[in-house]
């Protein structure tokens, strides 16, 4: 543990990751990750989850397989990633080159009263990801690392996972649309050029 370092601001981190997004498609996990992605700037190529906990990485996998020419990014919290940890094995076995998973890790369930997650007790998602065959750098703890990551997630030689240590500060919620049917229609029109 390197607790002496200030932890990263989640909003600045996500804004940096998405500022030059190009053709990137994004699936965000329920709770703060969805608010962070919305705060970075709404985009029809964002798919915001408001539920389906544990499903973010698996959903991004299906999208990455369907759209192999575009970078696909799952952005989620450590609680969602822990619930869907099996999907790291699924991703590692399937090996989509265009898929990156970014975990915003504050070691707590922020939406429900900041109860500690298993990460707070020493579980290491980077080691899990490596064990599943994903390329994964050591925990990212500074904006230089985030800057490197912002380029890495565009390289089609994944699958890739990055775990970013963020602070537990609760930012003003930026709430995107939560009508899933509208979100998926908007997404498909932007990506496929088709109505449902």
């Amino acid at each position: 543990m390197t607790d002496h370092l200030p932890l990263l601001n989640r909003r600045e981190t996500v804004a940096r990751l998405l500022c030059d997004r190009g053709e990137m498609l994004v699936v965000s996990g329920l709770g703060s990750a969805t608010y962070d992605v919305a705060a970075a700037g709404d985009d029809p190529r964002n798919f915001y989850l408001w539920g389906a906990m544990g499903g973010t990485a698996a959903m991004a996998l299906g999208l990455a397989l369907a759209q192999p020419e575009r970078p696909v990014l799952a952005i989620t919290g450590d609680g969602d990633m822990l619930m869907g940890m099996g999907s790291l094995a699924t991703i590692g076995a399937r090996r989509p080159a265009n898929l990156s998973v970014v975990v915003l890790d504050n070691e707590v369930y922020g939406e429900t009263g900041a109860q500690p997650t298993a990460i707070a007790k020493g579980v290491d998602l980077v080691t899990v990801a490596r064990g599943c065959g994903l390329e994964a750098p050591d925990d990212i703890r500074d904006m230089n690392g985030v800057g490197t990551l912002a380029e890495r997630i565009h390289r089609p030689d994944g699958p890739f996972l990055a775990n970013i240590k963020i602070d537990t500060h609760e930012y003003v919620r930026v709430l995107p649309a939560r009508d899933g049917a509208w979100l998926r229609t908007r997404f498909r029109e932007a990506v496929l050029g088709v109505a449902p």
Binding site: L25, V27, F47, A52, G54, G55, T56, A58, M59, A60, L61, G62, L63, A64, L65, A66, Q67, S87, T90, R184, F187, R188, V191, L192, V194
Partner: peptide, 12 residues
Amino acid sequence: VALLAGAWLGGD
């Protein structure tokens, strides 16, 4: 379930 939802978003 989640994977197929993502697949359909991407046109599969």
